[in-house]
Amino acid sequence: MKQFGGKLLFLDRSDINTDEIIPAKYLTEISKEALKPYCLEDLKLPDFDAKRDLAGKSAILTRGNFGCGSSREHAPWALEVNGINLVIAESFARIFRQNMYNCGMLAIELPPAQIDEIFSSFKSLETEVSVDLNGSMLQFTAPGHAPYRAAFRLTEFEAALVKSGGWVQFAAERY
């Protein structure tokens, strides 16, 4: 099973689409590794630079409707090859969310009030998030700041996909 959590990248915007996660012009690449340098290159946020800000991060906190737009596995792949295997948001586009689980990654939804609280408490700090998958709990920590805990829910099937490492491994174990 993959390790989840680590340094948190704050993307304070709703409706980040799959073209912003990985531009369509790179969909001809034949390996996940080839997508790596282009992840989030078209994302427009004040003071955001994908090359600088993505480095060393392994989780994203964002707003609603993350992964909207075209349905493509390349978007989760581009995140995964950059070390991101956890996205926490108010909501996800349905197909993007399922593609995350199919790849053995976590797409965790939290209520907007909790997302607001985490942004306001931690956005300006070097923040890490840890995941207790069996206890369905996230913990956000930053130096000099009290930890913040948030419960989440996964369906039994989502948890099984994540624990197996994705759909291909899940199917190989059972069929």
Rank of each mutant, 00 (worst) to 15 (best):
G67Y: 06
T141I: 07
S124A: 13
S91W: 01
A34H: 06
R94S: 13
T141A: 07
N85P: 04
N134R: 08
K51Y: 03
A93F: 02
D19L: 04
G83F: 05
Y148P: 00
E73S: 02
L125P: 04
E117P: 02
V87E: 00
F66C: 14
I108N: 00
Y38M: 02
S71M: 07
V81Q: 01
E41S: 09
A146L: 09
A107E: 01
S121G: 12
Y26W: 15
A50K: 14
R149D: 06
P46F: 15
F48C: 06
S58T: 13
F96R: 05
E33T: 13
I88H: 09
P76G: 02
G67S: 06
E20M: 08
C103E: 05
L79T: 11
L138E: 00
I21A: 07
N102E: 10
R72A: 04
P147F: 02
S71A: 02
R149E: 08
Q114A: 12
T62V: 11
T127P: 15
H74E: 15
D53Q: 13
P23Y: 14
F66N: 14
A59T: 10
G69M: 11
L43N: 12
P111S: 08
T62R: 02
F122Q: 09
A78I: 11
I22K: 10
N82L: 02
A146N: 09
A75L: 06
K32W: 12
I88V: 11
G104R: 12
L110E: 00
R94H: 06
E20C: 08
E20A: 13
S120K: 09
G104C: 03
E73L: 08
T141W: 05
G64C: 07
E90A: 05
G64Y: 03
P143S: 07
G104K: 09
A142G: 03
L110Q: 07
I108L: 00
C68N: 08
R72V: 05
P46H: 13
N99K: 14
K123R: 15
E29Y: 11
F140N: 03
Y148E: 14
A55I: 05
A89P: 12
I22Y: 14
W77P: 15
E80K: 13
N85G: 06
S71T: 06
S124Q: 10
L86V: 00
W77D: 14
T28G: 12
G135W: 11
L125G: 09
K44Y: 15
A34Q: 13
P147M: 03
D19R: 07
S58F: 01
V129G: 02
D116N: 04
T18F: 00
R94L: 10
N65R: 15
D53T: 15
K36W: 08
D132Q: 09
K32L: 10
L43K: 15
L86H: 01
R94V: 05
M137S: 03
I108Q: 00
K123N: 08
I108M: 00
